[in-house]
Design a protein around this nucleic acid. Structure first.
Length: 500
RNA sequence: GCUCCCAUCGUCUAGAGGCCUAGGACACAGCCCUCUCAAGGCUGGUACGAGGGUUCGAAUCCCUCUGGGAGCGCCA
């Protein structure tokens, strides 16, 4: 029942041709996916991609995504982190149909509030004799693992408490012991499932030790909570990191013992940092919040992510609404991908060029006050947007338009000196006649100085902006105002005359 | 150690036995365009981890090795 028949090739191959997730015992349908983070740290790019792919897979199939919070580790879970998590996901542009903040019929959406579901599942397992209390201390377990490793054996639970008589267990509990609860893994069984990305998988139950489903403190462990919630919430497709692949048989066993539906699984390859190690907090500025703080736009992240570990058939910039059309799980890669900031930067450039004026104003908010009223800000943004990659890039440009005086950089200084005082005198005279018309001004200066092209514009650019490169001059000049232009040309003339 | 996953330019990838003297994108270099930068256009270099098979023919299928990763937690 766990195996999808009728798929002659692995899911990957099949998926590219037809419906990505059609198989015999599960008719083509829209998918209910989920993202189930634990609020124990900042969302890094790898998790963000997993969330994004779940969103895309749901949209591409006309389904929906559920957001569930796995906060069973009370020690490490933090509400402030949860708020930040939701904010980051929204910022990225993800949408969930059900979740802690939007509600839904399968709630509650925080595992810390779903105790009754787990209790019911555990009752069922107990009634079937599939679980047993384990009194081993963490220290004993650590020693046991160490000993097994030293003996060249897999560090699995040794089964110390597996055969403990019920009476003995009861006696220990009465004496105050707090046992964990372990799932009794059946011997000699094969667990099979068809991974959407990796194809058919087969594991031997004998390779899996009895694992904890409820901790000594009564909280539910990952394997149980995660699997039960997926079933209770009607999740049909579990897209998660590769690191869960070898854990999946545990959840399949649990679900089978509980007679609950087993979802389809798809294990996404991990994201590696520049050093080649899997992405983590240690890998530097790879958290979504950091990237956002650096000024990356959400569209840049999305366009980058949709191509990271996924062969997106569309080459160019994709708007948010178009992405699902180009998403196909069957075109997901099986091997790990490296985070490459150069590529992210490329999409950032694209994001800036495709951003609306309103988005840019929001992105630059706080840095445009000096530019003036909305009309001027709008003109300014239009003039400089081609030269921006990050919000901070706008500050020197604001200075060009707003500062009373500007400093020339070395190259600009050389340009001004080379042009000589006479050039600026003529430029100033022409400006008095033609201001504020940039075009007729430069035409006039070109005529009287017999200069054209770079020889004409470069000294003007240097004098006016202090740099030898930057945005197109005409709109900048319009924003500066006649007075300022005259002052700067005069200043450049003085500097050239001083023999710089 | 055991189990599992993965392996094409520096990076992201195309590739389903002949369409591959391996294609695209990013990055890099050069040229063109241009008042500069950016954008755009053109050109260039760089890859099938190794060894064995199977086949008339292998990047593609099989095996071994190597390399990388994950799991084996009262983390998720």
């Amino acid at each position: 029942m766990l195996r999808c028949q009728g798929a002659p090739r692995p899911a990957r191959a099949q998926a590219g041709r037809s419906d990505p997730v059609t198989c015999a015992d599960m008719p083509a349908a829209s998918h209910v996916t989920r993202f189930a983070p634990s609020p124990t740290g900042a969302l890094h790019l790898g998790n963000a991609r997993t969330a994004f792919f779940n969103d895309l897979a749901a949209r591409a199939s006309g389904g929906r995504m559920v957001l569930r919070i796995e906060d069973t580790d009370a020690e490490r879970s933090d509400d402030a982190l949860l708020v930040k998590l939701l904010e980051d996901l929204r910022w990225l542009g993800l949408e969930w149909a059900e979740g802690p903040d939007v509600g839904g019929v399968h709630g509650p959406y925080r595992q810390s509030e779903r105790g009754t579901y787990y209790a019911r599942a555990i009752d069922s397992l107990e009634a079937q004799g599939r679980v047993y209390p384990c009194f081993c201390s963490p220290e004993e377990l650590r020693l046991s693992r160490k000993a097994q490793l030293a003996a060249g054996r897999p560090p699995r639970y040794a089964g110390t408490c597996a055969a403990l008589p019920a009476a003995e267990a009861a006696r220990r509990v009465a004496a105050g012991a707090r046992p964990a609860l372990r799932f009794r893994v059946p011997a000699g069984k094969a667990i099979e499932f068809d991974d959407l990305i990796h194809g058919p998988q087969r594991f031997a139950s004998d390779d899996i030790g009895d694992f904890v489903i409820r901790r000594a403190d009564g909280s539910v462990a990952f394997f149980l909570g995660n699997a039960v919630d997926d079933a209770e919430m009607g999740i049909t497709l579990v897209l998660r990191g590769d690191d869960h692949l070898a854990n999946t048989p545990r959840q399949v066993m649990l679900l089978e013992a509980l007679a609950m539906p087993v979802p389809r699984y798809g294990h996404l390859p991990l994201l590696l940092g520049p050093s080649g190690a899997p992405l983590s907090k240690r890998e530097g500025a790879a958290s979504l919040g950091d990237l956002r703080a650096q000024g990356y736009l959400p569209g840049a992240l999305r366009n980058y992510l949709v191509r990271l570990g996924h062969a997106c058939p569309a080459g160019g910039w994709l708007e948010t609404g178009e992405m699902a059309k180009h998403f196909d799980l069957g075109r997901s890669s099986k091997s790990a991908a490296h985070f490459d900031e150069a590529q992210l930067r490329h999409w950032q450039r694209e994001a800036v060029t495709h951003a609306t004026e309103a988005e840019l104003l929001e992105w630059l908010s706080g840095r445009l006050e000096r530019v003036g009223d909305p009309g001027r800000r709008s003109a300014f943004v239009a003039a400089v947007r081609g030269n921006l990659l990050f919000p901070a890039d706008v500050e020197p440009l604001v200075a060009i338009v707003c500062d009373a005086a500007i400093a020339l950089d070395d190259d600009a200084g050389r340009e001004v000196s080379a042009a000589g005082p006479a050039f600026f005198e003529q430029a100033l005279d022409a400006w008095r006649v033609h201001a504020p018309d940039f075009k007729s001004w430069t035409r006039a200066v070109g005529g009287t100085t017999a200069r054209k092209g770079a020889a004409l514009y470069m000294p003007l650019r240097a004098a006016l902006t202090g740099h030898t490169h930057g945005p197109e001059l005409a709109p900048l000049v319009a924003l500066m105002g006649s007075e300022r232009v005259a002052e700067r040309i005069a200043a450049a003339g003085a500097r050239a005359a001083a023999g710089g």
